[in-house]
Structures are given as C-alpha cells and as structure tokens.
Design a protein around this nucleic acid. Sequence first.
DNA 1: ATTGACATGTCAAACGTTTGACATATATAA
DNA 2: TTATATATGTCAAACGTTTGACATGTCAAT
Lengths: 324, 324
Amino acid sequence: MATINDVAERAGVSVTTVSRVLNNRGYISEKMRQRVYRAMEELNYQPNEIARSLLRKQSNLIGLIIPNVAHPFFGEFASSVEYYAYQNGCKLLLCNSQLDPVKERDYIEMMRRHRVDGIIMGSHTLEVEEYRNLNYPIVTLDRKIDDLPYVASDNERGGELAAQLLISKGCRKIAHICGNLKLEMLSNRRTIGFERVARQHNVEFMTIQTNMDVFDQQEYDRIISRLMAEFPDIDGVFATSDIIAAFVIKWCRKFGKQVPGQIRIVGYDDVNAATWINPGITTIRQPIREMGRLAVELIRRQMDGETIEKEHLLPVELVERETT
Amino acid sequence: MATINDVAERAGVSVTTVSRVLNNRGYISEKMRQRVYRAMEELNYQPNEIARSLLRKQSNLIGLIIPNVAHPFFGEFASSVEYYAYQNGCKLLLCNSQLDPVKERDYIEMMRRHRVDGIIMGSHTLEVEEYRNLNYPIVTLDRKIDDLPYVASDNERGGELAAQLLISKGCRKIAHICGNLKLEMLSNRRTIGFERVARQHNVEFMTIQTNMDVFDQQEYDRIISRLMAEFPDIDGVFATSDIIAAFVIKWCRKFGKQVPGQIRIVGYDDVNAATWINPGITTIRQPIREMGRLAVELIRRQMDGETIEKEHLLPVELVERETT
DNA sequence: ATTGACATGTCAAACGTTTGACATATATAA
DNA sequence: TTATATATGTCAAACGTTTGACATGTCAAT
C-alpha cells in the first residue's frame, strides 16, 4: 500500500508538502493541492491511520462492551452508539462479553492495548474494584460504579408507570419478572418503583428473578411456564424487557389465557420488536437512541478534558399497545 | 500511560529484554521473566498495540459492514462474527451502512485507512466496479461480485422448501414477499426456487418486492396491508425474512384471518425472534452462526495468503413451527 | 527599496514497538 | 580445555506520519 513518500515522489514534491495538503496547514497553492490529490488518487493512497494514531496518541476508536448484540435492546443501543460515533469521526470496536467475567476483563485489556479513546460499558460482571482502577474515559450503561459517569433510563419511574397502568386496568395479582437483583444494576430500581406502587394500592404481587441478561430462551420458558402453572390466577405481568414479555404472551397462549382479556402485560425497553410482536406489547419506553448519543458525547467530552456530571437519567414513557 | 521504556527502567533491564519477555523469543531466565512481569504490573502496563500494528503491518482488526445491527438477522450475524474474530485474536470494527452508498464508501475508506486485516461486506450498495478495485481481503455476504469469495445460504433450495411446504399443506394462492430483485443479491434466488416449484405444481402465486433491507416498519405495514386488502383470498405467504413474516401475522390478525387455519406463513432466516413471536414462525433456517464463522475464517485464510474457493453455499433447513 | 504574505523545500525528531547484529559473561557438557 | 547453550546487554533501523525550525524563493503593496 502506498505511503506518503510514494505520493510525494509521484507528485514531485516533498512529503512535508503532501502532509500540508493532507492536514490543511501552512500555505498551499491550488495548483499544488490538485497535483497532490491527483497523485494520491493515482496511487489509491489512504493515509495510514495507525501511524497517525501513534503520533497523535488518539485512536479515534470507541470501545463498546455489551452482553450480546444479538439481544434486541443491545442491538439497538449498539446501532445508536455506532451512528453517533461515526458522527464524531470515530469508529466502533464491538465486544460481546456474553456476561463472562474472563472475557470481559480480557476485552477491557484489549481495548487499553489498542488505546481506544473511551469505553462504553454495557456489561458489568467484574468487581467494582477493577473498574475503579481503570483510569480511562468510561461511560457505564445502567450501572452506578463509584463516581463513574453513567447513562440510564429513569428506571424507578418506569416501574411506577407499569404498576399504575396495570392497577388502573383492574389487575389484582401481578407478577413482576426482573433480572438478578443481586447484581447492582440500576434496572433493579424498576422493581422498587413497581413494588412501592403495588403496595400503595394494596395489590398483591410477586417478584420473580431471572438472569435476564443472559438471554437464555430456555430459561425464560422454564420460569414463565412454571409461573403460569403455579399461579393460574395472576391477571397482570410486568416484565423487565419486551422479550420476556413476548415469552409471557407465548405461554399465555399455550395456557389458553386471553391477552389482555384475562391477563395484562407490560414490557420494558420498547425495542422495535415490541411493535411487530402479536399482540403489540404495551411497554415502558427507554430512549435507546438518545442513550447511545449521550454515551458517545460523554466519552468525547471526557477526552476533551471537560468535567462532566455523573448522573444521566433519561425519561421513560409509557407506550400503550395491545397487551393491556 | 506507561511505555516499554518505563517497564525496562523499573525492572532495571534493557528494553530488548522486556520485549523478549513480551514476545517469548530468545533466552530469558525465569527470575528475569518474573521481574519484568512485576514491573509491568506495578506500572499497569499494556503494550501499545498501535505501535505494534505499525511495525507488523497487521492491525488484528476485522471490519464488518452491514445495513444495521439492530436488524435481528444482522445482529445475530454480527454476534457470530465477533465471537469468531475474538477466537482468532482479532477485534471487530462495526459499521452500519444504513444502505447509504455514501456512508458505505466512506466506511470502506475508513477501514483501509485503519488498515483492517479484512472486510466482511454484508451491505452492497456500491457499483461492482468499486468493490473490484478494492484489492483487499474481502468476504461478501449473500452477494456475488466478480470472483470475490462469498458466503451465503442455499437460497434457491430455501425457496423450494418453502414452496413445497406451503403447497403440501394445501395452499393454492401464495404471496411471496421478497427484497428488491434489481439488486444483485443471492437472496433473489429464493424467489427463483419458490417460483419454479409453484409453477411445477400449477399453484397461483404473486411476487411482491420490497426494499426489505431497509427494515422500514412503515413500508412493511403499507405493503402487507395493501396485499391483504387487494387479495383477500391468498392462503399462503412466503416472506423473505422472519420479521416480514411477523408483520404478515400482525396483519392477518387485524384482518381476522386465522394462522395457520386460513392462511399459512413461512419466513426465512430463523432468527431468535422466530421462536418467541406468536405464533412461532415456520421458517427456512440459515446457519447464521456458521456463516459468521466461515466469513472470519475466509478472511484469515486470505491474510495467510492461502488461495480459497470462492463459493460457500451453506445448507438451509426447514423448521416447522406454528404458522403452517 | 523595503516589507510581508505566500509558497515550497530540507532536515530531523517524535510516537512505541520489534528485531537483527553484535558483544559479553556464566555455567555446563564433551 | 574447549565448545556450546543460556542469559543479558547495547545499538540502531524500521514502521508511516506529523510538526517545528529554518531556508529560500516570488510577488505585490507600500
């Protein structure tokens, strides 16, 4: 592949001149500019970004670690991050941790070796200690670690909205399916909001924990089928993701329960799938696009040395469809 | 961030020695090895992969260009590519072209500038000419461009299987919803296979083109609702993706048509969503995981200078669920 | 005639690493 | 004793680019 020297030679000028053209600095006549551009084209030259990065000490790479892009929520989040990274002249390094601490640690090291400009952490399987010592521009998704900046939706409010809707529709016995509450994720606050409102209204409820992030379909099937079998009289479900909600719908169908006639369901996230699942899922909308945008912005501002606020709670919104 | 010089200084040895430890070459005593490792740990040292890349002329980066990771098929494909890239000691650079030729061209240039080791192209909006001149390790997904290597599922066979199933279930008037046939995608062969079998059995059919890749939900709604309104007597649908199939189900519901009672539906891909949509979608399974694995392997083998076969057609499989 | 903006050139250091050539020393085996 | 394997060191080039210091022009305006 052609180098800047080849271009200089071909254009019959010095490398300095080529560099000046490339970086728009110093005086360059229009003729010269054209001459250099022509040479670059003839050689199909692309400046070596690796050499540039080495010198600039900036890679223009943003690292994203998530459990798995194949999960709709993370897929849409990654899509947004990628979009805004591009807008900021950055490229996206994608890592699926599979929620495996070994892999996650390994990925973080890789990213440091590659000198990515910042890391967006949507997977958090390590000890707080390890993140603390990272000393790197970081943004966390849905998790509060010391005073690392994070972006999250207003989970507690989301839980409240879900509970309020179900109760207002007349539900008297509601199952809430959430993630593993032992992991210190902010999404646990959905449970707090939900339970508070349920208690306020004296509505019976039960909270069922899954390892939701793993996105293990069999696990979902197991948990939900057991739930339906053991408690045939529940008339409402608040699931912590739209995908779980979809599984609930599926099992309602198998158990011959009408949705929303006999049982009402509220999901969370408002991923695209929520609209094309049948029936359309009533859900708590997280502003996924905006969360991605903000995450990138926060990385960028840290790179620029700005001091940034740590808390970034984005508003949620109830989107009513056909399951309530 | 610490450099190899800092490590050498701290360990009281020469950089050459540190480098030898790092790369396992030459003679190194166990004591020395430990001493160097300790210094690296104390300094929280990570070798600068950028400097290494510059020297080695190898970035250990694989570029992936797809329309959008948020689309389930591409999300699952990306997930697989990421997994196998990691297995091969590579990192994944993710780009969503949004099927925008300008963006796609820009991304390809970016990747060349970053000297990625190879590019997996799942988006092809440019003229053949541009790909031809790329002169780079490339693998194409579902598209044949000159003699660039490609991986694809056995689309024609998939179309046949779908048609055979629908017909064997008694369908007499089948709608086939496919992508834009003008784009020279291998997925068009699904249409060929489907139409041939339909003709053989003298079954009436109609082929409806969409710009499927765009994943525009409104477009889907528009096309499918019109289809259902104009041809209320169709009793079978072969959709070129599971997502489109989901939209068909949705509109069947709105039109009060029973699935599979009055109308049978077959999708394509077998993305995860196919199992959790209601009813579960009967579909033609592409081995997505394997396609990702193969794509990475083909990049790696090109890097190693091997000559590789160009055609990689992977078998499809009928997965029957509840829509037929 | 002088000044200053414009245009290009030469040269070399720097970014962090690897690698080869070569030197030197110790310990062990033949 | 000699040869050989082991262990470490010094030195410098190379990867491709940017950048600053400095030199040397031309040309037009004062």
